[in-house]
Deep mutational scan, measured.
Amino acid sequence: RGFLEKAAVKKMAKAIMADPNKADEVYKKWADKGYTLTQMSNFLKSKTAGKYDRVYNGYVIHLD
């Protein structure tokens, strides 16, 4: 289950990176699912340092 969630989160993160207008909708879905910042950090780990920082930081702001 965790692997599928991670894959889904990364897919949506890539969608945000391609079209930032989708961010609020995606952040709301993640918040509704109760994803914590720790979970998001783990889901968005990448071999490329900083690749998903913008998405993660946007989610931090959304939760605030």
Results as ranks from 00 to 15, higher is better:
Gln39Asp: 13
Asp24Cys: 14
Met12Leu: 12
Tyr27Gly: 00
Glu5Ser: 07
Ala23Lys: 05
Asn57Asp: 14
Asn57Gly: 09
Thr36Tyr: 02
Arg54Glu: 13
Gly50Lys: 06
Met40Cys: 02
Tyr56Thr: 03
Ala13Val: 05
Lys51His: 06
Ala23Leu: 03
Ala18Met: 09
Ser41Asp: 08
Leu44Ser: 00
Ser41Leu: 10
Ala13Asp: 00
Gly2Pro: 15
Phe43His: 04
Val9Tyr: 02
Lys11Tyr: 07
Ala49Leu: 10
Tyr35Cys: 05
Ala49Val: 14
Lys28Ala: 09
Val26Ile: 12
Ser46Lys: 05
His62Ala: 05
Ser46Ala: 05
Asn57Met: 12
Pro20Val: 06
Ala18Leu: 10
Ile16Leu: 07
Leu63Gly: 02
Ile16Thr: 01
Gly50Leu: 05
Leu4Gly: 13
Gly34Phe: 04
Asp19Ala: 06
Asp19Ile: 03
Ser41Glu: 09
Asn21Ser: 14
Ala15Thr: 11
Arg1Thr: 15
Gly58Phe: 03
Ser41Asn: 09
Phe3Asn: 14
Val55Cys: 03
Lys45Glu: 11
Met17Arg: 03
Arg1Leu: 15
Gln39Val: 08
Lys47Ser: 10
Phe3Gln: 15
Leu37Ala: 10
Tyr52Ser: 02
Tyr52Ile: 02
Ala49Gln: 11
Ala18Val: 08
Gly2Cys: 15
Tyr52Glu: 01
Ala15Tyr: 07
Ala18Tyr: 08
Ala23Arg: 05
Glu5Asn: 08
Leu63Trp: 05
Met12Arg: 04
Ala8Trp: 12
Ala13Phe: 03
Gly50Arg: 07
His62Pro: 01
His62Phe: 14
Asn42Leu: 11
Asn57Cys: 14
Ala31Ser: 11
Asp64Cys: 15
Pro20Leu: 06
Lys14Val: 08
Leu37His: 04
Ile61Trp: 10
Val9Met: 03
Asp53Met: 07
Ile61Asp: 13
Lys28Trp: 04
Lys14Met: 09
Gly2Asn: 14
Lys14Gln: 09
Asn42Ile: 13
Arg54Asp: 14
Tyr59Ser: 00
Lys51Ser: 05
Met17Lys: 04
Lys33Met: 11
Asp32Leu: 10
Glu25Gln: 08
Asp32Cys: 13
Leu63Asp: 02
Glu25Arg: 07
Ser46Phe: 09
Lys28Leu: 06
Tyr52Pro: 02
Thr38Gln: 14
Ala7Lys: 15
Lys29Ala: 11
Ile61Thr: 11
Val26Thr: 09
Asp32Trp: 07
Asp64Met: 13
Met40Leu: 10
Lys33Asp: 06
Phe3Cys: 15
Lys45Thr: 13
Asp19Pro: 00
Gly50Asp: 07
Ser46Gln: 04
Ala15Phe: 06
Asp64Tyr: 11
Lys22Trp: 05
Asp32Gln: 15
Asp24Arg: 09
Val60His: 06
Asp19Thr: 04
Lys51Cys: 07
Val9Lys: 00
Gly58Leu: 03
Lys14Phe: 05
Lys28Asp: 06
Ser41Lys: 13
Trp30Gln: 00
Glu5Cys: 12
Lys45Leu: 13
Gly50Trp: 04
Ala49Trp: 07
Ala8Asp: 08
Asn42Met: 13
Gly2Leu: 14
Lys51Glu: 10
Lys29Ser: 12
Lys11Arg: 12
Thr48Ile: 13
Ala49Asn: 12
Ser41Gly: 11
Glu25Gly: 06
Met40Gln: 02
Arg54Cys: 15
Val9Pro: 02
Lys22Thr: 08
Lys29Cys: 14
Ile61Tyr: 09
Ser41Met: 10
Ser46Gly: 08
Ala8Ser: 11
Met12Asn: 06
Lys28Ile: 08
Lys10Pro: 00
Ser41Gln: 14
Leu4Cys: 15
Met17Phe: 05
Ala49Gly: 12
Asn42His: 12
Asp64Thr: 14
Val60Phe: 05
Asn57Glu: 11
Met40Lys: 00
Lys14Ile: 07
Gly50Cys: 08
Ala49His: 14
Thr38Trp: 12
Lys33Ala: 15
Asn42Val: 12
Lys51Asp: 05
Asp64Ala: 14
Ser46Pro: 05
Lys47Glu: 11
Asp53Ala: 08
Lys22Glu: 06
Lys11Gly: 07
Asp32Glu: 12
Ser41Val: 12
Ala7His: 09
Gly58Pro: 02
His62Glu: 02
Phe43Gly: 02
Ala31Ile: 04
Asn21Cys: 15
Phe43Arg: 02
Trp30Cys: 03
Leu44Ile: 03
Lys33Pro: 00
Met40Ser: 00
Asp53His: 05
Thr36Cys: 04
Asp24Leu: 11
Ala23Phe: 02
Ala13Thr: 02
Lys6Val: 08
Gln39Leu: 06
Ala8Pro: 03
Lys11Leu: 13
Gly50Met: 05
Gly50Tyr: 05
Arg54Gln: 11
Glu5Tyr: 06
Val26Tyr: 08
Arg1Ala: 15
Leu63Ile: 07
Gly2Arg: 11
Ala8Phe: 08
Asp19Trp: 06
Ile61Glu: 12
Ala7Cys: 14
Phe3Met: 05
Lys47Thr: 11
Glu5Phe: 08
Asn42Gln: 14
Tyr52Ala: 01
Pro20Thr: 05
Tyr52Leu: 03
Ala18Ser: 13
Lys6Gly: 10
Asp24Ser: 13
Gly50Val: 04
Asn21His: 11
Glu5Thr: 09
Phe43Met: 13
Ala15Leu: 11
Val60Ser: 08
Ala8Glu: 15
Tyr56His: 03
Leu4Glu: 11
Lys10Cys: 13
Glu25Phe: 10
Met17Gly: 02
Ala13Cys: 05
Ser46Leu: 05
Phe43Glu: 03
Lys11Asn: 10
Tyr35Ser: 00
Glu5Ala: 08
Ala7Ser: 11
Ala18Lys: 13
Tyr35Asp: 00
Lys11Val: 09
Lys33Asn: 09
Thr36Pro: 01
Asn42Thr: 11
Asn21Met: 10
Val26Leu: 04
Val26Pro: 01
Met17Leu: 13
Tyr56Trp: 05
Tyr35Ala: 02
Thr38Phe: 12
Val26Arg: 02
Ala23Ile: 03
Gly34Ile: 03
Val9Asp: 02
Thr38Leu: 11
Gly2Tyr: 15
Asp24Pro: 14
Ile16Arg: 00
Asp24Val: 10
Asp64Phe: 12
Asp64Glu: 14
Asp64Gly: 12
Asp32Ile: 09
Asn57Ser: 10
Tyr27Glu: 00
Thr48His: 08
Asp53Lys: 07
Lys14Pro: 00
Leu63Ala: 03
Lys51Phe: 15
Thr38Pro: 09
Val26Trp: 02
Phe43Ile: 10
Lys33Val: 08
Gly34Gln: 05
Leu44Asn: 01
Met40Asp: 00
Asp24Met: 09
Ala7Tyr: 15
Arg1Met: 15
Val60Asp: 03
Ala23Glu: 04
Asp24Lys: 15
Lys10Ala: 05
Ala13Asn: 01
Ile16Trp: 02
Asp24Thr: 12
Met12His: 07
Asp64Lys: 15
Val9Ala: 04
Pro20Arg: 06
Lys22Met: 14
Arg54Gly: 13
Gly58Val: 03
Gln39Arg: 06
Val55Ile: 10
Tyr52Phe: 10
